[in-house]
Design a binder for these strands. Structure first.
Lengths: 168, 168
DNA sequence: TATTGTTATACTCTATAACTATA
DNA sequence: TATAGTTATAGAGTATAACAATA
């Protein structure tokens, strides 16, 4: 059983290794293969779409974080879950590529606002549409009733995780 | 709508931004927030567990890849989805930490077998148990009927993805 | 003093290309 | 020639610690 979990985490549920073969005791052990594979498929799709748009996944996240409005470095770092020093480099590379810009803020001269350039807006929109499209394809084989159920359950799990991590 | 998706990709579905607010056209757009957040929660849990055991997520994957048996570098690279040159460094760092060992193979002197050390076996088992436990906690609020449904649907989606990527 | 952001440094992970040793 | 693996090099992403500028 132990081995099975690891094997699945490595890539996914292989055709002949379906649920029944994992009939072990704990719920976590039982559910792990499918869910880990699911997570890998989802994040793998994001990475693939990002690459198609000549972005890294983290750059995609950065652009998405600026979609609504310009943000301060501190806020952006918190949003992305990285240290401010790491964000400096991330923004620098994005700036060098012409995707974002730094701007001074009138009230407080310590603060920097990061904003999307026109290119950044286009890249963000294309990335986002690509991810949505990839997800559409992925869920295509599920009947719409199932899709709704999947969304509901995913939301429950996410909600649980967020209660456990209030800082998020 | 676009903005909402991005915001969710950044962290997850916030309490007051539930499904209803995403009532946009495409299915991908509609399902994206919950599923992306779900994937982030799952992979974030793996990363957290790995860190608790003083491993990187990739080191955890490496150990899991060696759980069943020693493997050649080429096979391991394919299993992990990275280039052989990248694997050389990964194995080197794990070796330096005493988690794995290289061993010659009798038949073919070009080949190297990577094996888990005793410490590596312990680390692998602890990591694996930690991930299973974290998943148990995460799914705890779902009734067991839902858990079974979630597994089934996840397997369908994963199966679809694998058909699209036969090399995997 | 506290906050905001940057720089310096070090590490992991990754890819490509060139190389060595073996088959 | 082909295969297995390493080395060299480059770059992204990350953290910690020290620093500068501003509040």
């Amino acid at each position: 059983m132990a081995i099975t979990i690891c094997a699945v985490y490595l890539w996914g549920v292989r055709p002949h290794q379906t649920t029944d073969q994992y009939a072990c005791g704990g719920q976590g052990l039982a559910a792990l293969p499918e869910l880990m594979a699911f997570a890998i498929v989802l994040t793998g799709n994001i990475a693939r779409v990002a690459e198609e748009h000549d972005l890294t996944p983290m750059q995609g996240r950065l652009l998405c974080g600026l979609a609504e409005q310009p943000r301060r470095m501190m806020d952006l770092a918190q949003l992305l879950g990285i240290e401010k020093a790491a964000l400096t480099g991330l923004v620098h590379r994005a700036e060098r590529r012409g995707l974002v810009e730094r701007a001074a803020v009138p009230g407080d001269r310590r603060v920097v606002h990061v904003t999307l350039t026109d290119d950044g807006v286009r890249a963000m929109a294309a990335f986002e549409a690509g991810v949505a499209g990839a997800l559409d394809e992925l869920l295509e084989p599920l009947p719409s009733v199932d899709r709704a159920e999947l969304r509901r359950m995913a939301a429950v799990v996410v909600g649980t995780a967020q209660e456990a991590t209030p800082a998020a």
